[in-house]
Design a binder for these strands. Sequence first.
DNA 1: AACATCCGCAACCGCTATGCG
DNA 2: TCGCATAGCGGTTGCGGATGT
Length: 204
Amino acid sequence: MDKKPCNSSQDAEVRKGPWTMEEDMILVNYIANHGEGVWNTLAKSAGLKRTGKSCRLRWLNYLRPDVRRGNITPEEELLIVELHAKWGNSRWSKIAKHLPGRTDNEIKNYWRTRIQKHIKQAENLYGQSSSSVVMNDQTGSSISQVSAIGRMDVDPLETYSAPSFQTNMDQAIPAPHLPAPESINDNYYWSMEDIWSMQLFGGD
DNA sequence: AACATCCGCAACCGCTATGCG
DNA sequence: TCGCATAGCGGTTGCGGATGT
């Protein structure tokens, strides 16, 4: 699908799929020097064969210097559950605003892959009640309900343990869908610090 | 060791909202 | 006021690693 590298002749027009380090650097460089602007124009001016939409998404979800990745803390998790109970789906960006450095995409993914899974498990074990309670609660008292959800076999905070990859900007993080470390390709293993330091030196 | 299945996440798609001429 | 362009959002997809058999 969208993640396949595009090699056909058409792909010379608009690239899709995973971003390369080179593209990241171009984007970071350009924004560092010119700031964010009209994304379509930015994409063209920077010489990226990407849509403005794609550039914007990459910047917001991955390249922004203030973006924090992975290792969602129990506090953040509880906040997500609370705010989701308040506002429900369709308010990911609103929820993200309460979690500095977190993106709506990350929170959405986290919810769908971790929390929702456990709600479903709870439904199977306890019937419909637990999920409906969490989803409908308007009082912000969902913390206790989280415990109820996670009760099936482990502590909820254990159950929702953070992703395995590192979050800090100063630590190497794998690029999306990168090969295993032992088969690392030069283009696919870099840290955000690398990109930012490179742009500092290489900025025009 | 090989294969199958599951899981997490980056990225795209489609739709709606907003701004501007 | 209307129409177009762009931004922004939520939902969905599918790759690739992890885990299980």
